[in-house]
Design a protein around this nucleic acid. Sequence first.
DNA 1: TTACTTGTTCCGCATTGCGGAACTTGGTTT
DNA 2: AAACCAAGTTCCGCAATGCGGAACAAGTAA
Lengths: 255, 255
Amino acid sequence: MDLETDKDRLFVTALARGLEVLAAFRPGELALSNQELAKRTGLPKSTVSRLSYTLTRLGYLAQDEDNGRYRLGLAVLALGSTVLSSYDIRQIAGPLMREFAQEQGMSISLALRDGSDMVYLETCRSPARISVQLTVGSRVPLATTAIGRAYYAGLPAEEQLKLQALLAARYSAEWPEIGARLEEARQAYLRQGYSASFGEYEPDVMAVGVHLAVPGQAPMALNASGPAFALDEDAMRARIAPALKALRQRLAPLG
Amino acid sequence: MDLETDKDRLFVTALARGLEVLAAFRPGELALSNQELAKRTGLPKSTVSRLSYTLTRLGYLAQDEDNGRYRLGLAVLALGSTVLSSYDIRQIAGPLMREFAQEQGMSISLALRDGSDMVYLETCRSPARISVQLTVGSRVPLATTAIGRAYYAGLPAEEQLKLQALLAARYSAEWPEIGARLEEARQAYLRQGYSASFGEYEPDVMAVGVHLAVPGQAPMALNASGPAFALDEDAMRARIAPALKALRQRLAPLG
DNA sequence: TTACTTGTTCCGCATTGCGGAACTTGGTTT
DNA sequence: AAACCAAGTTCCGCAATGCGGAACAAGTAA
């Protein structure tokens, strides 16, 4: 708080703390008490109390009638869907992705980059699988996943360089190794036209990915994934990867 | 700011203002400049500058490379989908709703109440229609829409009373009239098992609604809607309304 | 009752955020 | 080029705002 504070007269702490409270809620949790919020955010009780009061008044939190715990309010939902509405590719991709998930019995996702992560814009699970807990808004690392590597490999060389710098900073000591594997993946992508991660990111998950470049839109990527026990590498390479490429073709006929 | 300030030592203004900035973004808008944010929120330039700086650092805003304007950041998306993930009924309802939209050529939505509004948890447009700009997170008034009236009519009497009080406060002078029509709608719902709004809320939109009571979940409601020019009242009553009831049956076999 | 656990409220302090004004920056016009 | 305008950032002194420890409620358990 010494070197930073100079310029961070601009940084509004109270706002950041309030958002920290909102972000303390993780998917699947029902409701959090003030105390739990305090623990998670590391803020003193009274501060959390004030923040949650404010957030509740604004509709970003809602208080459970019975036990007084807080849930995320529906105002948050409105914000989130405003974000989604700006990515109109979802309208086109959604139905095709569902079709894919149905036909191939796989989960499929569409993602774009945020920093050193890939963020899911849309996911369709295969009907069979309740599967992995990745949903719209979830993040996976770019450098070590099929979808991230496909994204990277599909970028113009210039952008790849910028991204390398960002990732190098992000991973520091680990970068040499991770970077090498990323370069490896890029080579493979050039040869095969898809990236693969067979149990590499999540032990029991197999995935393949392709990049998706729609003119005038930010670069994106698609992946198809499923549990290792139900899939074998041959099928992934021979059937799933080509199907994914075909889907990409329907989304970006020119790209 | 006199009578309120007493207790509103608790209210954290900076947080509220930051969220106001986020909420200034409306669906379909690409990006807003600091100045536009200032105009919309009524805050001075320098304040907005600080807030947008803070929000950007936290990932809740993202700055467009070219023109420096702000877009909602992907962190917002994560929050929004955390909300959605807590309503697991979407997993079940989603596919059935899409099926309905496909078969009936109508838009269909699932909503629950927030204050005096109904908030859409899920919507499926018919493939034919690009249609109305209502999406997940959108709000429509409870008292004057098919979906809201169905929600109301499906509530236990006790809850209806509480809601009346809330609506009376909300509409004050207009309440007698609006309340009377709501009561009318409730009567009709008892007779027919569905509510209807034929051009009442939006001039050219016809809609029918049914309530959805799943044990252990907050009460909800469904509607089916479409453009007036493509629909006639008979078809809505004879075909769509029963189909909607049938769908409800599949979602809440016991209710 | 006492003891404990969680949430709210108090209250004086100083930090934090405020916002008008000055200062860049970048794009147009004359 | 000079002059001009619009948009954004930064400065800076002021005081209002938010802070957080501690006291106070309210509820539960032993």
